[in-house]
Computed example of a mutant assay.
Amino acid sequence: MLEIRALRAGYGRVEILRGIDLEVRTGEIVAVLGSNGVGKSTLNNNISGLYRPFGGSIRFKGEELAGRKSTDIVKMGVIHVPEGRRIFPNMSVRENLELGSIARGTARRKANLERVVGIFPRLQERFTQHAGTLSGGEQQMLAIGRGLMSEPELLIMDEPSLGLSPRLVDEMFGLVRQLNAAGQSILLMEQNAVQTLAIAHRAYVIENGMVAMQGNAADLMNDPALRKNYLGL
C-alpha cells in the first residue's frame, strides 16, 4: 500500500531523514518508533505532502506522492491524524468532525458521522460543545474521529498516546487494535514502544534519521539489543 525508498527529508538546509526505506501492506499496523527529534513527524509531513522531500520516493498504491498537493493526497485516502490533535478549539465537536469530510467522504458524511459516534459515544454527548473545552482524551478521540470522517485507506497516527493518562493510553491502544480488526491499515508513530509493539504487525526503529532496526513486532519485542538499549528492559 505504502512504499518509501531512500527518503531524504528535512527543513531548510537541515537533513533530518537520511535514506529511509519503509513499507505498509494492506491491513497492517506498522509502527515507527523513536524518541523525540529522530524524524517521525518529518516522515509524516512528507508522506502527507506538507513538505517536499530532498530525495527518494514515496509511493501509495503505486502512485508517487512526492510533489503532490496535500489536498490531493487526502483525496487519495492517505489521512494524517497529527501530533497534538490540532482540533479547532472554538468550533463545536460536530463542526470539527464535519470538517474531516470536506476533501473526501462528503457524499457519505451522515453515515460516517454515525460510524464515528458509534466508536466514540462521548463525542455525540458533546456535539454542541466547543472542542477546546474537551478533556485531553476526548480531544484525541475527536482528532481520530475527524480523520475517520475522510474514509482513510491508510490512517497515519502521530503520537496518539501523548499526554494521556495511563488508563486513557490503554483505551487508545485498544481503539487502534479495534480499527485494524475492522480492516483499517495504520501507520503508527509512537514513543510508547512496549504497548505499540504489542499491537503492531511490523515495526521500524528510527535513530539519527535512519532505520536502525526493523522486523516483525513480536521479534523486535524479544530482541536483546532493542530491549536493553531502547526499551530499558
Rank of each mutant, 00 (worst) to 15 (best):
L2W: 00
L2V: 03
I4K: 01
I4D: 02
L7K: 09
L7F: 07
R8S: 13
R8A: 05
G10M: 01
G10H: 02
G12L: 12
V14N: 03
E15V: 13
I16E: 02
L17P: 00
L17Y: 12
G19L: 09
G19D: 11
I20K: 01
I20L: 15
R25F: 03
T26Y: 09
T26M: 06
E28A: 10
E28C: 13
L33C: 06
L33Y: 03
G34V: 01
V38L: 10
T42D: 03
N45G: 02
S48F: 03
G49Q: 07
Y51S: 11
P53M: 12
F54K: 04
F60H: 01
F60K: 00
L65W: 03
A66E: 02
R68E: 06
K69W: 08
T71Y: 15
T71C: 05
I73Q: 13
G77F: 04
V78R: 02
I79K: 00
R85D: 05
R86A: 10
P89L: 13
M91H: 13
S92M: 09
E95H: 07
G105M: 02
T106Y: 11
R109L: 09
N112F: 00
V116A: 07
G118N: 10
I119Y: 11
F120G: 07
Q124K: 14
E125A: 12
R126M: 11
R126Y: 09
R126F: 14
T128Y: 10
H130K: 14
G132I: 06
G132E: 07
G132H: 10
E138R: 02
A143K: 00
G145E: 05
M149I: 12
S150G: 14
M157I: 12
D158I: 14
S161I: 13
R167S: 15
V169S: 07
D170I: 04
E171W: 04
E171G: 01
M172H: 00
M172Y: 00
F173H: 10
F173N: 14
L175I: 12
R177A: 15
Q178E: 11
Q178I: 01
A181G: 15
G183W: 08
G183N: 12
E190T: 06
A198T: 08
I199S: 04
N208C: 03
M213H: 12
G215T: 09
M221I: 01
D223S: 07
R227P: 01
N229P: 01
N229L: 14
G232L: 08
L233M: 15
L233S: 14
